[in-house]
Amino acid sequence: MKLQILACAALTLCSTTVFAEHIGSVDTAFKLIGPDHKVVVEAYDDPKVAGVTCYVSRAKTGGISGGLGLAEDKAEASIACRQVGPVSFPAPLKQQEEVFNQSLSILFKKLRIVRMVDQKRNALVYLTYSDKLIDGSPQNGVTAVPVDRNTLIPVKK
């Protein structure tokens, strides 16, 4: 019974995961059985800002547990968000909002990306970090995308 509850919880978490576009990866450690440990690079298009994509690099655990999807990936991640086309805003943005999250383990650990609006500098600031149900990680990464002064960022009041 406990195994069934655990499986249902895992499926629920997996179903809410944001899928990133895989850009590439490099192996960091050879594993005799299962996939190697690696660093993966993924792209996330900001769903509320046309023309901005965030690139995140993060560790992906290999081995038997990694191959089965049971491993807990490390909390370290790096982020770089860039203007990849004309920037536009279909609707006003919240001052601060989580725009992506991705599961890093079968239960309770997520990589999160939060967008913040820096109105004074007319820029979008993106922060990546991981959290866990009990104890998150202070390791984080930050990047900013300047927006042309002629295009004011609309913010919800």
Rank of each mutant, 00 (worst) to 15 (best):
G34A: 01
G34L: 02
P35D: 06
P35Y: 05
P35K: 10
D36Y: 11
D36F: 06
H37D: 15
K38F: 05
K38S: 14
V40H: 07
V40A: 09
V41M: 15
E42W: 07
A43V: 13
A43W: 08
Y44E: 06
D45K: 03
D45L: 00
D45G: 00
D46A: 08
D46H: 07
P47A: 09
K48S: 11
K48F: 12
K48Y: 13
V49A: 03
A50Y: 01
G51F: 01
G51M: 01
G51K: 00
G51Q: 01
V52M: 09
V52F: 05
T53Y: 06
C54H: 02
C54E: 01
C54W: 02
Y55V: 03
Y55L: 06
V56W: 00
S57W: 08
S57H: 05
S57R: 11
R58D: 03
R58C: 02
A59Q: 11
A59W: 12
K60I: 09
K60G: 03
K60A: 08
K60H: 13
T61F: 06
T61R: 12
T61G: 08
G62D: 05
G62M: 04
G63Y: 12
S65V: 05
S65P: 02
G66K: 00
G66M: 01
G66F: 00
G67P: 10
G67W: 07
L68I: 01
L68E: 00
L68M: 04
L70I: 10
L70C: 04
L70K: 09
L70W: 07
A71W: 02
E72V: 08
E72S: 15
E72I: 09
D73N: 15
K74E: 14
K74F: 12
K74A: 15
K74M: 13
K74V: 10
A75V: 05
A75Y: 05
E76P: 02
I79K: 07
I79F: 08
I79C: 09
I79P: 02
I79N: 04
A80G: 06
C81I: 00
R82G: 03
R82W: 04
Q83H: 06
Q83L: 08
V84L: 03
G85A: 14
G85Q: 06
G85W: 03
P86S: 15
P86E: 15
P86Q: 14
V87L: 02
S88Y: 06
F89S: 03
P90D: 14
P90K: 08
A91C: 04
A91D: 10
A91H: 13
P92M: 05
P92V: 04
L93F: 13
L93Q: 11
K94H: 13
K94T: 11
K94I: 04
Q95Y: 14
Q95L: 14
Q95P: 11
Q95N: 14
Q95A: 15
Q96F: 01
Q96C: 10
Q96N: 06
Q96L: 09
E97A: 13
E98A: 09
V99A: 04
V99C: 09
V99G: 06
F100M: 12
N101G: 03
Q102T: 12
Q102G: 13
S103K: 11
L104K: 07
L104S: 02
L104H: 01
L104V: 03
S105R: 00
S105E: 00
S105C: 00
I106H: 06
I106Q: 11
